[in-house]
Structures are given as structure tokens and as C-alpha cells.
Computed example of a mutant assay.
Amino acid sequence: MSTASLGSLRLPDGFTDVFTSRLVELDGLRLHAVTGGEGPPLLLVGGWPQTWYAWREVMPALAREHTVVAVDSRGAGLSDKPDDGYDAGTLAGDLVALMAALGHDRFDVVGHDIGMWTGYALAADHPERVGRLAVVDAIIPGLTPAPPVFSPAAVSQRFWHFGFNRLTDLNEELVRGRERLFFGYQFAKKAATPDAIPAYAVDVYVDAIAADPRGLRASFGYYRALDETIAQNERRKKTRLTQPVLAVGGARYSGAMAAETMRLAADDVTEVVVDDCGHYVAEEQPARFTAILRDFLGVNPAAAVPQG
């Protein structure tokens, strides 16, 4: 393992007193994670097109009761960006290996956006590893019924990027050099208000993609792998999850859809819809989101239950 600097980022006061940035060498893959705190391990898996930085506002409070691991999944941030492996099953396997390398065989998971896809795969494929699962403001391809091609305009406004991101080459040519326009549009339109995600945070996410010549390809890789992820999820949904699940939605974006999706896969689902909030719950409403998570995770944290 090696360390990476947090010094160039705008972070909550005292953040670097608690958290360390590290690069973890796995079998042929290097993942970046920011870790800190004490207590049962908690894995935070972010969404597209973000990095671990999306969790910065909630990590200090969570670290009072948990050993927090905020990860850049393969293809994101400072993690490696190989040519393939962006299906949910492979991403989940990466994170099992990461947590094992950090000394955590059993842990709780929070996944946002495409991190919700990975979180579901983690809980379904590795039930012995995952205690409690919290998912945030997304649907899951292959589990959630697909919308029709000719959807109402409001639906298309939310999901148009699925088709665009799955293109093989044209999307990269159109976006390269215009990353701030393309990705900035995502944050402006999906949040409750256009400026809910501060410009400095958008810059962190955009720079992480634009600064690496492999960044755009990797960013679209999660969507180009959707055929494989969908096929996996059609198999996964045949066996229902046994873990407690928390499904959080922003009232001004996905709302109840996160819980509706998880009820297709799990019996023990707690639904919370956060008012005055869009897609980016951890950044738009960090205090409320932290309280919701602590309530859910504080009930007999499964990672603390003796194994065997």
C-alpha cells in the first residue's frame, strides 16, 4: 500500500486528522481509497461521474462509529482504469478484495447511483461479506423494469445518458475537450437546484476524468458493460437478499424509485425520501443523510456480529 495526498482538496475541518488516502495493490489492479475512523467497517461506493470525494461531508460523522472506507472503483478517480471489468459483478469482486486487503472480511455497504448497482451485486454475490446494505437514489438495470424507447419527455430527461454513454466511440469524441460542459450538465440537472453541487466539487470530478487519457473511456465503461450487468442481475434476482436494506431517494429526483427497485430483490427494505433534495443526497443534504445512515447502521451493525 502507498499513500496519496489529500492536501489539494477542499475538505471539512479536521478531515486529514482522521482520514488517510491510500493506493491498495490487489491482484493486477490498484484501487484508491480514503480510510479512517474506528468501529465496524463501512464501505462507501460512489456514483457516476464522481469519486470518493462525494462522501466528504458525511465521512467525519460516520467515522466516529465506523471504520470508513470511501473507494474509487476501478475506472474512477485515482484507481486503475483497465480496458474491461466494468460489469457489476467484477466491480463487486474488486471491492471484496479491497476490503480483505484492508483487513475487513465482513462489512456494511452504502452505494449511490452506479454504486447502487455494485452494492446490490456485493450483497447478492457475497452475502457472507455484506451485513447491511444502504442504496441511494438510483434504479438497477436488469432488476428495475426498463422504460420504453418512446418515454415521456420527463423520463427521457432523466435517463437519456444511458443510451449516450453506451455508444462505442462517438460519445468520447463529442465530450473530449467539453468535459466541463457535459459533466457539469449532469450535476446541474440532477441536483435539486443547478448550484447545489458547488463548482469546486464539480471541478474535482471533471478534472479526475479529463486529466487522465483513459478517463473518458473508463467513465463510459460502466454503461458499455450494461448488457453483462443486466444479464447478471436477471440471475441475481432469482434469489432474494437476506440483508436489511435501506433505500434513500431524493424527493426531487428518484424519490421512491430506489425503494421500489429494492423491494423487487429484498424483503427487509426501509424507505426514506429526503425532501428538498435531488440525486446527490450525501452532498445536498449531508446532515440529514448522516442521521438516516446512523439510524440504520446503528441497529446491531452486521459487521460486528460474530462470524461462524
Rank of each mutant, 00 (worst) to 15 (best):
D94Q: 10
T242I: 08
T193C: 11
G75I: 15
D87R: 08
K81E: 02
E172W: 06
G77T: 12
P147A: 06
G103K: 01
Y253F: 14
R176T: 15
W117G: 05
L31D: 06
L174V: 15
A153M: 12
W117S: 03
A123T: 10
G119I: 03
F15P: 09
P194Y: 01
L42T: 00
Q243E: 07
L31Q: 04
G75D: 05
D17H: 01
G93D: 07
D267C: 07
R178V: 09
D80A: 06
S2W: 02
G111Q: 11
I114L: 07
L133S: 02
V45A: 01
A124M: 10
I209D: 06
D83A: 13
W48K: 08
V58I: 14
E271T: 01
E172G: 07
A134Q: 14
T168V: 07
E38T: 15
R180L: 05
M59Y: 05
E57P: 07
V34K: 12
P194I: 02
Q243H: 08
V68F: 09
L91T: 13
E234K: 12
T168F: 07
Q186V: 14
Q243S: 14
D94Y: 10
M1L: 14
A291L: 00
A101L: 01
A191T: 08
I197T: 11
H112M: 14
W160E: 00
G142S: 03
L29P: 00
R56K: 14
T193G: 15
K190L: 04
W160F: 06
G221M: 13
A208E: 03
L297Y: 10
A100S: 13
G77V: 12
I139W: 02
R235N: 05
L23P: 06
V69P: 00
V273D: 06
V18K: 11
H66R: 12
P194L: 04
H104G: 00
V305K: 01
R10T: 15
R240G: 06
D268A: 14
Q232W: 05
L23F: 08
G142E: 08
E179N: 10
V58T: 15
V135S: 00
Y200T: 02
I292E: 02
D212A: 04
L9D: 02
D137N: 14
V281K: 07
D207R: 12
G115V: 13
T270H: 09
Y280K: 09
L31M: 04
Y223E: 00
E38F: 09
A192Q: 02
G39K: 09
G89Q: 10
D87G: 09
D94H: 14
G77A: 09
G111A: 07
Y223G: 00
P141M: 03
R252P: 05
A101Y: 08
F187Y: 15
G177V: 10
K81Y: 12
A54R: 12
V45S: 00
V204L: 00
T168P: 11
P286E: 03
G103T: 03
P152T: 08
V34S: 02
Y200D: 09
L91D: 06
V305D: 08
T239S: 05
E271Q: 09
G28W: 15
V109P: 04
S79V: 14
G103W: 04
P40H: 01
A258E: 04
D84R: 06
P41C: 01
L44T: 01
G278H: 10
F15D: 05
E260T: 12
H161V: 13
V71T: 06
A282H: 12
R214W: 11
D276H: 07
S2T: 15
G142Y: 01
A259T: 13
V96K: 10
W52H: 13
M257L: 15
